[in-house]
Amino acid sequence: MIPKPDLLAQAQKLDTRALAEIYDLYSPRLYRYAVRLLGDACTAEDCVAETFSRFLQALQKGRGPRDYLQAYLFRTAHNFIVDHYRHGSPESILDDDTPDCQNTEENACLNIRQHHVRAALLELTEDQGQVIALKFLEGWENEEIARALNKPVGAIKSLQHRALAHLQKILLDDEV
């Protein structure tokens, strides 16, 4: 097993062993992140595949991450997700009527609530959505998020504050 700090250096040389280790290390987390935000296993797999494909292409061109590989991969995955919703029809999610959960199975209710949360996240700006996803879904610290978004920690806090306020307004104020 290649030591973690050397992984990126080896990957930049297109060392297949290092690339395999990177894939094994990050693909489950990326999948989880994608499926949470996308709600679809198949699209989440596409997201993971596309993320690693872009990573490989960047390495081939001598570009790609110089450090903070995890931040790079999650940023790439998030871009895919945003693009997916931009080119798809997120309105169908937003326009769903609130289901009557009393007469449905619990799983169905859960799916519907998840749809609502995702739709609310899509109403946030790109950066706000990513801050919320990384912070509250993936459990990252502000410093890690700052690296992923190439922003100072103070800006991340500010984004988080505004994002939470907006989400609260969308998801909770409607309930009142």
Partner: peptide, 9 residues
């Protein structure tokens, strides 16, 4: 609500 997203398949 956000935690509910964590329970994805």
């Amino acid at each position: 609500l956000l935690d509910e997203l964590k329970s994805a398949s």
